[in-house]
Design a protein around this nucleic acid. Structure first.
Length: 877
DNA sequence: ATGTAGACGTA
DNA sequence: CGTACGTCTACATG
C-alpha cells in the first residue's frame, strides 16, 4: 500500500524489542566462550535484518531508553515502579547491541529523561509531515496512538519476536474498535499493570470502547461520568483522577528536541570490517551473511577498490628478472607462489612496477645471489615461501618486513591474517581474487607480483600505525624467529613408528577390556565416548547425583567424576576414567603416527601469529601438547628419537620463568631473594608464608604455596584456589592473606599493572610487545573481569615468550655461524629440543646455556636445565 | 560437508 | 570464579 515514490522512514524501539528477544531466546544457546550473553542482541538483530530486507527503508534509526528515570517518573514516581529490576544479563547486552548498530551505520538515538517511544513519536510525526512513509517498530502498545495513514506500526505478536503484526488505521479499528488516536483513552480507563498505572476497577477494553463510542471522547465521558449507572459508574467517579493521570502519562511526546531530522537518517553503507569484528566477538556466524544480504552487496562500504588501477605485470626471462630486482634501490616486495611446498612462480614489485617469472632451475640460479643478499625484501606470510626456497637450496636473507606478522603485532586478537584482509583493513581496497568455485573464473585474481605490490603498500600503511616499540619487536624478535622456525619445520623430528604402534595396540586392547567391564556393570552396551549417552547411564541407570551443569546437560569431565567417586563410590567411575585415559592416549598416538612422513620425521607447523600473548602455537600436528604428566604417557615421548646421523637429543628448559619475570617486574625483594638464594622456590616461599624453617616445609605446605604462586600469574581468586586445592574457601583466603603479607610487592605490581592497562588500553611486555584490552572498561562485569585476568597475565606470559624467542633464534644463528650441524627441532614454550651432531655436544650445550641464560637482563637469574638422551623422554632428566 | 560442544593434552 | 593454545569424538546442522 506504500507509495513507492515516497521515502520510507523506519524507527525502531531498540529497548523493548531487545527485551522481548531476551526472554524469547534460551540463553544457553546464546552465550559466548567468555560467558557473554548474546540472546537479546541476536534476537534483535535477527528481526532487524529481516525487517530491513522486507521493508527496504530509505531512512532508519533505532532509539533506546537511557534509564528508568524519565519525565514520567518525575510526574508520577510510582510509574513502572512495580517492574522488577531489568536483569544485569540484559542491560549488559545493550552497549554491545549499540556497537553492532554503529558498525551497521544505523543511527542510535537516546536522550536523557526521555523514553525511546517518545523519540519514535517525534520522528514519526516529523516524518509524516515531511512526506515519508513511516514505519514504527515497537513492543509498547502506547505507540498505537501514532498510527495514521502515513504511519504504520509493526508490533511483535505473541508468537515471538520474529512475527510482527502490522497496524494501520483500519487494523487498529478492527482490533480495538476505536481510531488509533483514541487508543490511549482506552488504555487510560483500563489501566496498564506493567506500568503500574491502575485504571478503573471492573472496566476492561469492552466497557471502555462502549463508553468512548457513546460519549465521543474521553473528556466528554469524564465530564458526564454521573450518567453512568451501577457499580462501574461509581468506580469511574472514584477514579477520575487516576484516568486523567494515566492519559497524561501515556501521551507520547511528539516534540522532543533531537540532534537529527528524518532526512539525516538516510541509510548509509555499513562498515563491513567493523561488523565482522564485532560479530566475531559475539560469535555470530549465520547472522553475518544475512546482514550483508539485507543491506545489499552494493551498499557495503568496501567497494571503492574496484577503482584502483593495478600495475600490469611484465613477464621477464630469468636473467632479466634478476637484473631488475638487483637494480632496485629501496625495498622490493616479493611473492613466491608454491605448490606442494615447492616454488612455482615469483613476483616482485616496487611502488610502481611489477615483474614476474616462472620458477625454474635457471630462475633459481639467477636469483640466488639477490635472494641470499641483504637487499631488503617485503613479504606477506614469508615462512612458507622461505621453506619453499630452502627446499630449492636457497636461504632467503634481507627479510625486512612481513605484513602478516606486522598486522598480528598491531592487532593480535583479530583473525585477519590474509593479505586480502590486510588490504581491506589498511588500504580500504579489495585485492582481486579468482573465485575458486568456478573452473573458468569470471574475475581474474591478482598475480603474484600484484600481490607483492599490495603487500608493499600494506607494509607502508602498517608502518604508519605501528608504535616504535612494537616495530622493534617485529624486526628484532619476530623476523629472526621466522627464519629459525622455517628451519625447524623443515628439519622435523624423528619419531619411531614401531614404538608408537606397539603402544597403540596395548592401549586398544586395554580400552576394549575396560569397556566390556563397564558394560557388564551397567547391564547394556553404549558409547562411552558420548557425553550424552554417558549422562543417561550415570544419572538415570546408576542414579548418581547430578553434577555441574553445562550448556547441554551435566558435566562428566574428569574433575567431577573424581568428585563423584569420592561422594558416591562406584566401580563404573574408575573404569570410565581409565577408559578415557587409554583412548585419549591412543588417539594422540594415532594422530602422531599418521603425521610421520617418508623421512621418518614429523614436521609440525608453528603458527607465529597463533596467540594473543606472543607465544607460538603448533599445528598439524600440535607438538606442544605431547603428554608428559604420567609415567605411562611418557612412553609417547620416548618415540621422539635422535635422528640418523645425529648423536643425541638435548633438552633445555627455563625453570619457573614466569615467576622470575614476576619477581623482576614487581621488584618484590622476598621473591628476588628466593631466586638468588638457590633454595627451591616453593620451599623458600612456603617457609616465609608459614613462618617455619625451609627444612620444615611439609609437602602439603609446598603444594599450597606452589598452587598459589602459579595461580597468581593467572589472576586466581580465593574461590579458584580453594577448588584447586580442595580446601575451604576461608582457608584459601587466609593463605592469600599470609602470602601477600610476605610478598606484598607482587600484589601491588599486579594491581598497578591492570590499572595502567585500563588507562592506556593495552598491556606491554618487557620488550614492548603490546596487547590491546578494550574490555577493561566494559560496563559488563563478566567481560571486564575476564579482561582483567587476561591483562594481568599478558605481560608475564608475553615476556616469557619474548625471552624464549630471543634465545631460540640466537641459538639457531650461533649453531650455523659456528658451522655446526646440530639444530633446534622443537619449541614448547619454555623448552627447546636440539638434535646434536656427533662431537658437537659441548659446543651445543655451551651455546644453549649461554643464549638462554643471557636472553634477558632481569633482576633474577634465568635458570636453565639441560638434559641429554637418545629420546625425548630420556633427555628430559 | 561443516560447525559446535565437551573433553583433555601441553606450558 | 585461572592464562595461553590445538585436536579429538559425537552430534547437530546443511
Amino acid at each position: 500500500m506504500t507509495d513507492s515514490a515516497k521515502p520510507t522512514l523506519m524507527v525502531v524501539d531498540g529497548h523493548s524489542l531487545a527485551y522481548r528477544a531476551f526472554f524469547a531466546l534460551p540463553v544457553e544457546n546464546f552465550t559466548t566462550k567468555d560467558n557473554q550473553h548474546t540472546n537479546a542482541i541476536y534476537g534483535f538483530l535477527s528481526m532487524f535484518v529481516n525487517l530491513i530486507k522486507a521493508e527496504k527503508p530509505t531512512h532508519l534509526a533505532v532509539a533506546f531508553d537511557t534509564s528508568r528515570h524519565s519525565f514520567r517518573t518525575d510526574v508520577y514516581p510510582e510509574y513502572k515502579a512495580t517492574r522488577s529490576e531489568t536483569p544485569q544479563e540484559f542491560r549488559g547486552q545493550i552497549p554491545l547491541l549499540q556497537d553492532c548498530l554503529a558498525a551497521m551505520s544505523v543511527p542510535v538515538l537516546t536522550k536523557e529523561g526521555i523514553e525511546a517511544d517518545d523519540i519514535l513519536a517525534t520522528l514519526a510525526t516529523q516524518g509524516a509531515q515531511q512526506g515519508y512513509d513511516v514505519l514504527v517498530v515497537s513492543g509498547d502498545r502506547d505507540t498505537i496512538q501514532l498510527v495514521t495513514d502515513d504511519v504504520t506500526l509493526l508490533y511483535p505478536s505473541v508468537q515471538g519476536v520474529s512475527q510482527l503484526k502490522r497496524y494501520d488505521p483500519v487494523t487498529v479499528q478492527d482490533r480495538y474498535g476505536v481510531r488509533p488516536e483514541q487508543y490511549p483513552d482506552i488504555a487510560a480507563l483500563v489501566g496498564e499493570t506493567s506500568d503500574n498505572l491502575p485504571g478503573v476497577p471492573k472496566v476492561g477494553e469492552k466497557t471502555a470502547v462502549k463508553w468512548l463510542t457513546q460519549f465521543g471522547s474521553l473528556d466528554e465521558l469524564l465530564e458526564r461520568a454521573e450518567e453512568i449507572k451501577g457499580v462501574v459508574g461509581g468506580n469511574l467517579r472514584e477514579h477520575l483522577e487516576d484516568v486523567r493521570r494515566n492519559r497524561r502519562l501515556n501521551r507520547l511526546l511528539t516534540d522532543v528536541e533531537l540532534p537529527v531530522a528524518p532526512a539525516d537518517l538516510v541509510v548509509a553503507p555499513i562498515d563491513a570490517q567493523g561488523v565482522r569484528d564485532i560479530f566475531a566477538r559475539l560469535e555470530f556466524r549465520t547472522l553475518l551473511p544475512r546482514v550483508f544480504e539485507a543491506v545489499g552487496a552494493g551498499e557495503v562500504a568496501d567497494d571503492p577498490a574496484s577503482a584502483v588501477v593495478l600495475p600490469q605485470p611484465v613477464e621477464l626471462a630469468a636473467a632479466e628478472f634478476a637484473t631488475w630486482v638487483e637494480a632496485q634501490e629501496g625495498e622490493v616486495a616479493l611473492r613466491i607462489t608454491t605448490q606442494g611446498g615447492a616454488p612455482t612462480r615469483v613476483g616482485a614489485a616496487t611502488g610502481t612496477e611489477v615483474r614476474e617469472i616462472d620458477w625454474s632451475e635457471a630462475a633459481a640460479d639467477s636469483l640466488r645471489g639477490w635472494l641470499e643478499s641483504d637487499s631488503p625484501k617485503v613479504l606477506h606470510d614469508a615462512k612458507p615461501q622461505v621453506k619453499a626456497l630452502l627446499g630449492a637450496g636457497i636461504r632467503l636473507a634481507g627479510l625486512a618486513y612481513d605484513t602478516s606478522l606486522a598486522g598480528w603485532l598491531l592487532r593480535p586478537s583479530f583473525p585477519d591474517k590474509t593479505l586480502v584482509d590486510l588490504v581491506e583493513r589498511y588500504l580500504g581496497e579489495k585485492l582481486p581474487q579468482a573465485d575458486p568455485s568456478q573452473l573458468v573464473p569470471e574475475t581474474e585474481g591478482a598475480t603474484p607480483s600484484q600481490e607483492a605490490w599490495f603487500a608493499l603498500r600494506v607494509a607502508a600503511a602498517l608502518r604508519e600505525d605501528i608504535p616504535e616499540s612494537v616495530a622493534r619487536v617485529l624486526t628484532e624478535i619476530e623476523l629472526p624467529t621466522l627464519l629459525t622456525l622455517a628451519d625447524m619445520e623443515v628439519a622435523g623430528v624423528a619419531v619411531s613408528h614401531d614404538v608408537l604402534s606397539g603402544f597403540s595396540g596395548e592401549l586398544a586392547t586395554r580400552a576394549d577390556g575396560l569397556a566390556q567391564d563397564a558394560f557388564a556393570l551397567v547391564g547394556r552396551e553404549f558409547n562411552l565416548g558420548s557425553p550424552k549417552q554417558l549422562q543417561e547411564v550415570l544419572f538415570d541407570d546408576l542414579q548418581l547425583p547430578k553434577t555441574r551443569k553445562t550448556k547441554t546437560g551435566y558435566s562428566t569431565d574428569a574433575a567431577v567424576l573424581a568428585d563423584l567417586q569420592e561422594s558416591n563410590p562406584h566401580p563404573f567411575l574408575g573404569l570410565l576414567l581409565q577408559h578415557r585415559e587409554a583412548t585419549k592416549l591412543r588417539q594422540i598416538i594415532e594422530s602422531l603416527d599418521t603425521a610421520i612422513r617418508d623421512d621418518h620425521r614429523v614436521h609440525t607447523t608453528y603458527v607465529q601469529t597463533g596467540s594473543q600473548t606472543g607465544r607460538l602455537s603448533s599445528t598439524d600436528p600440535n607438538l606442544q601438547n605431547i603428554p608428559v604428566r604420567t609415567e605411562e604417557s611418557r612412553r609417547i615421548r620416548s618415540a621422539f628419537q635422535v635422528g640418523d646421523g645425529y648423536e643425541a637429543l638435548l633438552t633445555a628448559d627455563y625453570s619457573q620463568i614466569e615467576m622470575r619475570i614476576m619477581a623482576h617486574l614487581s621488584g618484590d625483594e622476598g621473591l628476588i631473594e628466593a631466586f638468588n638464594s638457590g633454595e627451591d622456590l616453593h620451599r623458600f616461599v612456603g617457609a616465609r608464608v608459614f613462618g617455619v624453617e625451609p627444612s620444615d616445609v611439609t609437602a602439603a605446605m609446598r603444594t599450597k604455596v606452589k598452587a598459589m604462586s602459579y595461580g597468581l600469574v593467572y589472576g586466581l581468586s580465593a574461590f579458584g584456589l580453594s577448588k584447586q586445592l580442595r580446601i575451604e574457601q576461608s582457608e584459601a583466603k587466609q593463605l592469600m592473606v599470609e602470602y601477600f603479607a610476605r610478598f606484598g610487592a607482587v600484589r601491588d605490581y599486579l594491581r598497578a599493572s591492570v590499572l595502567k592497562a585500563k588507562e592506556v588500553g593495552y598491556t606491554e611486555t618487557i620488550f614492548g610487545r603490546r596487547r590491546p584490552f578494550p574490555d577493561l572498561s566494559s560496563p559488563n562485569r563478566v567481560l571486564r573481569e575476564n579482561a582483567e585476568r587476561a591483562a594481568l597475565n599478558a605481560p608475564i606470559q608475553g615476556s616469557a615468550a619474548d625471552i624464549m624467542k630471543i634465545a631460540l633464534f640466537h641459538i639457531h644463528d650461533d649453531l650455523r655461524s659456528e658451522g655446526l650441524a646440530s639444530r633446534v627441532l622443537l619449541q614448547i614454550h619454555d623448552e627447546l629440543v636440539v638434535e646434536v651432531a656427533p662431537g658437537e655436544w659441548d659446543a651445543a650445550e655451551r651455546i644453549v646455556r649461554s643464549r638462554m641464560g643471557d636472553a634477558a637482563e632481569l633482576s633474577v637469574p634465568l635458570d636453565v636445565q639441560v638434559g641429554r638422551g637418545q629420546d625425548w623422554n630420556e633427555a628430559a632428566h
